[in-house]
Design a protein around this nucleic acid. Sequence first.
DNA 1: CTTTAATCGAGACGGTACGTCGCGTCTTATT
DNA 2: AATAAGACGCGACGTACCGTCTCGATTAAAG
Lengths: 203, 203, 203, 203
Amino acid sequence: MPPDSTRRSEKSRRAIYAAALTLVAEVGYPKTTIEAIAARAGVGKQTIYRWWSSKAEVLMEAFVDLGAQAAEAAGGDWAETDGIPDTGDLEADLKTVLRATVDELNDPRYEAPARALAAEGVGNPAFAKEFVATLLLPSLELYVRRLRTAQDAGQVRADVDPYIARDLFVSPLAQRWLQGTGPLDHAFADKLVEYALYGIAPR
Amino acid sequence: MPPDSTRRSEKSRRAIYAAALTLVAEVGYPKTTIEAIAARAGVGKQTIYRWWSSKAEVLMEAFVDLGAQAAEAAGGDWAETDGIPDTGDLEADLKTVLRATVDELNDPRYEAPARALAAEGVGNPAFAKEFVATLLLPSLELYVRRLRTAQDAGQVRADVDPYIARDLFVSPLAQRWLQGTGPLDHAFADKLVEYALYGIAPR
Amino acid sequence: MPPDSTRRSEKSRRAIYAAALTLVAEVGYPKTTIEAIAARAGVGKQTIYRWWSSKAEVLMEAFVDLGAQAAEAAGGDWAETDGIPDTGDLEADLKTVLRATVDELNDPRYEAPARALAAEGVGNPAFAKEFVATLLLPSLELYVRRLRTAQDAGQVRADVDPYIARDLFVSPLAQRWLQGTGPLDHAFADKLVEYALYGIAPR
Amino acid sequence: MPPDSTRRSEKSRRAIYAAALTLVAEVGYPKTTIEAIAARAGVGKQTIYRWWSSKAEVLMEAFVDLGAQAAEAAGGDWAETDGIPDTGDLEADLKTVLRATVDELNDPRYEAPARALAAEGVGNPAFAKEFVATLLLPSLELYVRRLRTAQDAGQVRADVDPYIARDLFVSPLAQRWLQGTGPLDHAFADKLVEYALYGIAPR
DNA sequence: CTTTAATCGAGACGGTACGTCGCGTCTTATT
DNA sequence: AATAAGACGCGACGTACCGTCTCGATTAAAG
């Protein structure tokens, strides 16, 4: 039977999050051991094993918590929470968001844990499912929404599948970040938007 | 001093490749240990440590060898080796190749080791560099070449950066394979080509 | 401060005794844990820690209680409680009692807990003191008393130290039971009495 | 399959013996952990688990080794090795040996490990068998031999069972050492010999 | 065609981390 | 206030692999 979550120690939970994030940043994900997290958090190993099933789970929750705290701190920003801005100018809006995404991907604060989670996901389908559903898809869905709005406004062809269109913008960023197949900067983001909107063939 | 490669045992090398690939397919990459590879290959551990520096290196060579053998068996196909076909019809050529890539990514024979290498690369920048340079970029460069030809033929605008254009086609496949963010099939490949060539905005 | 024993739960105490004895018999003393006793007794761990300081203490009290219950059930037997019989025939009396002791030592009902307590005592001098004073010496003292009576009756030499004489009878039983250095049966008991009374040298 | 004993590290073996004996003396047997032995010996835990199945086994071998080294150092003493002296005077010979045994039992050098082994044996029949057969019985057999010689010389009655006679001398020492039921000194040893030889009944 | 030196299969070694068990303490809700 | 329940910090368990290190026994190049 599962443990009684009403008696869970909030202090331990937060200490574990902090320890996990710190260690991943300091020594990297593979050398971040559950024992080290427990020691750094001043917690017994069993307290980790009681509530999580793997260090990937721990890190994922820690990362989500980190995002939640950041969002709370940032107060009422537009951010991913409020969706993609809609100024009526699709090209400008997409560039704004893609540039912000590039900045976030390059933010060393998120780099280490995000990379670790992505790596775990690539090699571990079960974890990938949870990771994608929890962290990735919600953000990606915002693009789809914005694209549908653009379709309604006649700025995107009606027969375009917004999911595929979304990948045209987002996946190149993802791949360059995941695999380092090329530079990841604002210029790249801008070009992606232009090419994707108007095509690479002569008009 | 490095070992004398002239006295290297070819038999052991091949046994190690086979063992590594088998184990990755059978028990997964994380549970594939050097000890298990050595045992399965009927080889001393030192023989592995003498020639490779990590299990990722072993697997990478094994995977390359697998590809080489497959290529040899297939004889003189066009394949990635010969580059992307150039029938003069860019759209058709890209669809052909992307569909083939989709098929290859879905081939269970390659799935396990390729995924393992990708995962290792995502979490290990040093390995990523080697992995990308050796396995990924050569294939990706073929797209760039084909796109340049198309530019010369006036089928792609001259001011388009072929590296970015390439990512428009390839990265969506990569992300769906790596992270499972959506289905990976021929229809998807076709749409990608169409959208990227002609844009998603009304013409 | 010590807990208030007037509010102590009698039901829990008895359940703990039963659980301790059962577990020692079922899985052995080393694998009998306080957690298991608590679980088996349907009792909180703290209830054990409140009233006893170690599992050895618990088992000792449980064992004493077991003996008390048995004595009560047996009603007014002579037993060890009433001392050693005095029919006037020292040899016969000693044989009677030693045979009874042999039977008791071989009784599987007592074997497991008694052995556990003895083992704990051998390795733990602090516990040994309590164990010997509470369980062992009272019984042994009965021999001394009977031997003194025999001395008064002229059946034992007056200059004999009754404590040492007692050990002549009792210790061989103890050692064979504790260490299994030889068979432990009535014949052995009889011989011990004869040899100790009349010596092994030619008369 | 069992490990290859020809490749065993002698240095580690001796370091483990020393660590085990030291720790038992310093912190007691129950608090002597395999981990602590390994750490103190500068050895991996696996090296202990490879060659022994429990800490009791380790300690037993260490203790035997200790005895062997002591015997070697003592050179050609009479000791238990050469058996019990036979001067023709049984009473004197027995007193000599029993006094020596008393001294040995009181020697703090042997006290801690011997007690630990005895305790383990009392509570663990499987270990007891090995312990008794290896360490105890050989010594006890010497008494039997000496008593048989005495029987041949007419100093002990021919119908006396030498095994039981032996227990008359030895078991009282054993019990007082194991359970602390009384003082363990030369006077006690002398009295035991006298009582056992000539009986406690009036002659 | 030997000699000889490097590679080989094998696996013991000092370590680190695993995931589990039990300790004794503590907290919470129930009786 | 004592109780049943069980989370907690802690420490040890016995196991799995790590990467290094000997060992003979091939084994292929150089003498």
